[in-house]
Design a protein around this nucleic acid. Structure first.
Ligand code: FES
Ligand code: FES
Lengths: 138, 138
DNA sequence: CTAAATAGGACCAAATGGGTACGATATGCT
DNA sequence: AGCATATCGTACCCATTTGGTCCTATTTAG
């Protein structure tokens, strides 16, 4: 359905909340309460984000998560890539290779579309999510 | 994985081939051979495209499919919408409503991103798929 | 009448996505 | 030392979606 997963949605909301007070270390239950994401899903999601390097974790009592870089340096594209893996609209725009590839003329076009979308997702950073929606001249 | 379905891929290839000789009526097996899409899948896909009005069908012997409008009037966005339904990156950018919706600040941003992507898919028509890839200033 | 073609499903297997649970490990505090 | 509080890793389950096949109508040319 050309939809990104709910987990990506959760990730964005969680990160967006963390960006409102960068540096601060938040634990799962706090983030879950603030964002209304269920605690187990918040936990699952934050683990992935930590593994992918978007946030850093402090373990043990009074531990939690903290953004690993400035909110302006984290884009929606980063979040999507962290949760869903590389953005490739079609099989042939990744390196898996498409069954039609050998006789197909439109592959380069897919790649163009793919880059266009990636670019538009890169345009928007966590920092900008804080403000009102007014980007890309729309 | 932010990937459009293989059927959408098939649809694009099939339509692209039909666009190389608009007006002409092609039957399934011809299209399957030309595009290397398996005949059953080509058939299934073309049925959907016909139902959604992108192509018109002629039934009976020597029947087949024909583009219902000029290739320049059919965009990738049309194809995606025909096969996958409305493009909505997140639940909350459609009207289904998102579980977080009531306390969420970033919803308007999703809508902006969504429109951006739809626009970039609208930019590219079947007619342009015929030529080399050089769109959107990339 | 018959062959060729689409229409519209049912149907199945595999993959994906959403969500839960649990044991292991690390840290601060008393 | 010992306990409470956290994250980490992963395994698991269930519902949905996807990819693909197949079969039976119905339509039309010759
Ligand atoms: S190579 Fe995948 S659609 Fe052309
Ligand atoms: S309303 Fe869905 S993520 Fe904000």
């Amino acid at each position: 359905m050309l939809r990104l997963s709910k987990q990506t949605d959760y990730a964005t909301v969680l990160l967006s909340h963390m960006a409102s007070a960068p540096q601060r270390v938040c634990n799962v239950s706090e983030l879950a309460q603030a964002t209304h994401v269920s605690a187990p899903m918040a936990s699952k999601t934050l683990k992935v984000l930590a593994r992918e390097g978007l946030i850093e974790s402090e373990r043990g009592a009074s531990g939690g998560y903290r953004l690993s870089r400035d909110p302006s340096q984290i884009s929606i594209a980063d979040i999507v890539r962290a949760i869903e893996g590389p953005i490739a609209l079609t099989q042939c725009s990744s390196h898996e290779g498409c069954s039609l590839q050998s006789h197909c003329q439109i592959r380069p076009h897919w790649q163009v579309i793919n880059s266009t979308i990636i670019n538009s997702l890169k345009q928007l950073s966590l920092a900008e999510l804080q403000g009102p929606a007014s980007h890309l001249g729309l």
